[in-house]
Design a protein around this nucleic acid. Structure first.
Length: 961
RNA sequence: GCCGGAGUGGCGGAAUAGGCAGACGCGCACGACUCAAAAUCGUGUUCCCUUUGGGAAUGAGGGUUCGAUUCCCUCCUUCGGCACCA
């Protein structure tokens, strides 16, 4: 925010370092800019090259191998690279300026060693009932686990760098290990799994990894409920979920699995925190923050949702608390986050993020009190400045006490108290009648020198803009209501225009008008601007606003300015189950990061881990005691842990090299695989994870750690699976569908196919337990079609061309649908083709080349949907080489797909009256002639000539009589 | 209030460079097989009218067009987000 002059909290030593950091960074950059020019130019061209290739959707075959040094040394030594506008320019020198390290960091007293509880984690076996299904010919319960084991033993889905192939990084949001997988997980994983398999068959080197977002409230609350230590409970759940995911026949590459609660993972989460701190992007401040009284922790603004401002996790209304917390400077990227160029993301998500960031364009204008105190305000309507007849301060505005007159002091104090007592919801309810109190002070309107009263009112929020507004009652609804209630002056300055820009129907009169006029018009009562046309456009697109801003800037009383609703990301959590924030506080040296070679700061195991409102780590007798990395004197650790969204902001990077220990990821892997080509997951993360991860990527980019402007090139969101009664599925309602039961009953292939078929994937739908029977039937019919050597039954002769046409038309359609996430029509097309093949088989197709081709192509198209049955039929029944999942996607034979005659409907006056069959290559004239020759048409024509004949080639003939 | 999705048979849905509305599946009905049931197979299934046949219909109403589920306008319902944001 450019205009907000928020008062810094009382300067304590502890807040100094980060505040300084920003300043130091900026000034250093300016100084260093020239010296670094050549370096910057050099790396700029490189960045550009890499970015453009990375941003291409279909990756090219080869990227130059990295010639850089190891990761850590890069992060330390690399100077700034050309970064886009608005980026933080940071140099290693500026980092040094931030942290006043004189000597080499002293070894600190290490945190107690975490005895890995993993060894004792004995996973509860996943219950798999004996199959009820009694069809011996087709037995998925036996066949599926068999193939799964073979594929795994053969490492079929392992993804390794292969420069000869184009890469495809398919990423699906990772689950919280809070219990069993539910059907929603399957819905989010299976269709993307099928698509990843399809991409693989198309010749891409596909990486499709999976992991667990294992820290955080979800996993911790689940552990609390069971009364089992979160470490133990979480890893037990992970083991269960891994098995369940395997039973789905997914192609996840388990060698790339990443678990955010594993020290080898969170070491780097902490390392990132340190980098952000060193670059001035992590800071600590006292603020009125959102607190969930049930989960006993603070929350980020994004994690407080809905009208009633409830906790995103547990639905409890949050309260405000004044606390000192750690923040990430996400607002620094507000403008860049509004730019979605080059990425293929759904409009819905882009809109949600845009609204969340809430950019408003306008002006900041400087007012003064009569006595000379400076008041800065933000307005989106500088063209109405002449109509500002009073000012309103938020009750918490720091100037209030100083300007209040002795006569008004009692009333003002009373009002402030009452405002403080109210909850946010009460205060900010839009339907509440406005209240306020006069301060006794006056300001001077800088555009016309008018003396205007200053009021305080709780409809002005300290958290937006500057906490003070100019009130223009004639043109703002809220100000109007306030002015009428307290008898304040109303002066219209925008005269509405009548139709065609003529005179208004009724001229505005400040005394009598009944509502604010918030729209376009002609400026009046505005000095030299009288007669200027004000449109409904926002910002400087509005000529009146543009003219006034230019004038304000000339006179030095205001300037163009932008305001955001977006807030910095609060990441402190007063909970046990998270990555400890790797910071140390010393009475002399303030806050300093734990030296990087001493990461990770491990979570202690022996704590009372249940939440109390204070961080459990604070209550540990010794954990927090350490020594200052600068002076070696006794110091204390930060005892809060990090928001789990911090862990998930970079998990796509950890998959690149989950066991790499020289950095958060192996650069060679990064250079080959990144960026993520296709990202899939729920839309509920639109303003949380999906915004955090973009911010995170941009921050890392500016620190020289990542490349390109965006981490994920294409995003697709699945809808939600609702319960059969259209309500949300939840354990408490008892309406959840357990996928394990479905797999036991029908087999994974059937469940997979049904999940792709029963709804539009991007929409979701209520679950229909009956519907799966149809998909199960389809599987069995496929089995029969391939395994039962049926005798020809009908007399009609088999036409190989017709079968081939259907096969290749289906292939074309299915290929398109995999590409564009239209999974439900893949299944219906395959069902249709199967029905066609049944007919062909009855006509005696078996044994013909067309039949053999149809069988092969059918299984190849089916393989991504139903990997087990496709493999079984391919390998064991058709005797083709193992594995079907290593075959290439078939090519459409366009000649075979072509129709040789087509049936066209004939419309007469817009109604279909007949159909004619013509050769596919017929000319318009021929089609027209054929239509006019039809008996039905002649009957309707009754000897007359049609007024008009329209031939839509390949579609229809339309006659107008 | 603002922003953004979505409204098609009993149900999930299909069809949009404007061109046969209801593909595919569920459900339902009838039939075959069976002592019977299940499974399987076959036929039918938007609604209305007195049949041959005709009419109406894609949330409602209007418009553009030979032709609109698709494009435009005005509404309605519903889901999601934001909300005294100056």
């Amino acid at each position: 925010m450019t205009t907000t002059k928020k008062k810094e909290p009382k300067k304590k030593t502890r807040t100094k370092a980060p505040a300084k950091a920003v300043k130091a960074t900026k000034s250093t950059v300016v100084k260093k800019a020239t010296a670094k020019k050549s370096v910057a130019r050099k790396s700029a061209s490189k960045v550009k090259a890499v970015t453009s290739s990375a941003n291409r959707q279909t990756a090219t075959l080869k990227k130059p191998a990295s010639t850089r040094k190891t990761f850590v040394s890069k992060a330390r030594t690399r100077t700034k690279r050309a970064a886009p506008k608005n980026a933080v320019m940071i140099t290693s020198e500026s980092v040094k300026a931030v942290v006043p390290v004189k000597a080499a960091p002293k070894a600190i007293v290490p945190a107690p060693k975490f005895e890995k509880a993993l060894a004792e984690v004995k996973p509860e076996p996943v219950k798999m009932d004996a199959p009820e299904y009694e069809d011996h010919a087709f037995n998925p319960q036996v066949m599926e686990p068999g193939w799964q084991q073979k594929w795994e033993a053969d490492k079929l889905y392992r993804s390794v760098i292969d420069e000869r192939k184009p890469k495809h990084y398919a990423l699906t949001m990772l689950p919280y290990p809070s219990g069993d997988l539910h059907i929603g997980h399957w819905f989010s994983m299976i269709p993307p799994d099928a698509r990843a398999r399809f991409k693989r068959m198309q010749g891409y080197n596909v990486m499709f990894p999976m992991g667990f977002d294992a820290f955080g409230l979800n996993a911790e609350n689940a552990a609390i409920k069971d009364g089992i230590h979160p470490m133990k409970r979480t890893f037990q759940n992970i083991e269960r979920m891994r098995r369940q995911m395997r039973s789905m026949g997914t192609m996840f590459d388990w060698e790339r699995e990443a678990v955010s609660a594993d020290p080898e993972y969170y070491k780097w989460t902490q390392w990132f925190f340190v980098q952000l701190f060193k670059h001035g992007l992590a800071y600590r401040k006292m603020a009125a923050v959102d607190w969930c009284p049930k989960d006993n922790t603070t929350l980020a603004r994004e994690q407080v949702i809905g009208e009633n401002r409830v906790c995103e996790r547990c639905g409890t209304p949050v309260v405000k608390k004044n606390l000192e917390q750690w923040f990430f400077k996400a607002t620094q990227y507000a403008d860049e986050l509004l730019n979605f160029d080059g990425i293929d993301w759904p409009e819905r998500v882009k809109t949600l993020q845009t609204n969340w960031i809430g950019r408003s364009e306008g002006a900041s204008v400087v007012f003064h009190t009569e006595k000379g105190d400076l008041i800065e305000i933000f307005t989106t309507r500088p063209d109405t400045l002449w109509g500002a007849t009073f000012m309103v301060f938020s009750p918490e505005h720091p100037l209030v006490d100083a300007i209040t007159s002795p006569e008004q002091k009692a009333a003002v104090d009373e009002y402030k108290l009452q405002a403080a007592r109210q909850s946010d919801i009460e205060r900010e309810a839009t339907d509440k009648e406005k209240t306020g109190v006069f301060t006794g002070a006056f300001a001077i309107n800088p555009v016309n020198e008018e003396r205007i009263p200053i009021w305080i009112a709780d409809y002005v929020l300290m958290s937006y803009g500057t906490g003070a507004i100019m009130a223009v009652p004639a043109h703002d609804e809220r100000d109007f209501e306030f002015a009428r209630k307290y008898g304040l002056k109303v002066i219209p300055v925008i005269q509405p225009v009548g139709v065609d820009g003529g005179p208004p129907v009724q001229e505005l009169n400040g005394e009598t008008m009944e509502a604010a006029h918030e729209h376009e018009g002609i400026m009046i009562n505005s000095g030299l601007f009288n007669g200027t046309r004000a449109t409904n456009d926002k910002g400087i697109k509005n000529p009146a606003i543009k003219a006034v801003i230019e004038w304000l800037e000339e006179r030095g009383i205001g300037k163009r300015s932008v305001n955001y609703r977006y807030r910095d990301w609060l990441i402190s959590r007063q909970r046990y189950w998270g990555a400890p924030i790797p910071m140390i506080y010393c009475n002399v040296h303030g806050w300093n990061p734990v030296p990087e070679d001493q990461l990770p700061v491990l979570l202690p195991e022996d704590v009372e881990w249940k939440p109390t409102g204070e961080s459990p780590l604070k209550l540990h007798p010794t954990w927090k005691n350490t020594t200052c990395p600068i002076c070696g004197e006794p110091a204390t650790r930060e005892t809060d842990t990090m928001d789990t969204f911090m862990c998930s902001s970079w998990y796509h990077l950890r998959y690149l090299s989950p066991h790499y220990d020289k950095g958060p990821f192996d650069e060679t892997e990064y250079n080959y695989w990144m960026p993520v080509d296709t990202y899939t997951g729920g839309i509920e993360h639109a303003t949380m994870h999906l915004l955090y991860t973009r911010f995170f990527h941009k921050a890392l980019r500016d620190m020289g750690i990542t490349e390109g402007n965006e981490p994920m090139m294409q995003l697709r969101n699945q809808g939600m699976v609702l319960a059969e009664d259209h309500s949300k599925m939840s354990k408490s309602r008892g309406n959840v569908v357990a996928p394990d039961d479905l797999v036991n009953k029908y087999g994974a292939d059937t469940v997979r196919a049904y999940l792709m078929f029963f709804a539009r994937w991007e929409m979701g739908a209520p679950w229909d337990a009956q519907g799966i029977e149809g998909t199960s039937r389809w599987m069995r019919r496929i089995w029969t079609l391939f395994t039962d050597p049926a005798q020809p039954r009908t007399g009609s002769a088999f036409d190989g061309r017709q079968l081939r046409r259907k096969v290749h038309q289906t292939l074309r359609k299915v290929t398109h649908d995999y590409e564009s996430f239209e999974f439900n029509t893949i299944i219906s097309s395959l069902m249709e083709l199967m029905n066609e093949m049944y007919k062909a088989r009855e006509a005696g197709a078996v044994g013909s080349p067309a039949w053999a081709e149809a069988q092969a192509i059918y299984l190849l198209m089916l393989a991504p949907v139903a990997p087990h049955i496709a493999e079984e039929l391919w390998t064991n029944h058709l005797g083709k080489p193992y594995s079907i999942h290593q075959q290439s996607w078939p090519h459409v034979d366009e000649a075979a797909a072509k129709e040789d005659s087509i049936e066209l409907p004939v419309q007469i006056n817009g109604k279909v009256r007949d159909r004619i069959t013509v050769p596919a290559e017929s000319s318009e004239e021929e089609i027209k002639a054929a239509a006019l020759a039809s008996e039905t048409v002649r009957k309707y024509l009754d000897g007359r000539e049609p007024k008009k004949v329209i031939v839509a080639k390949g579609r229809l003939v339309s006659l107008v009589l």
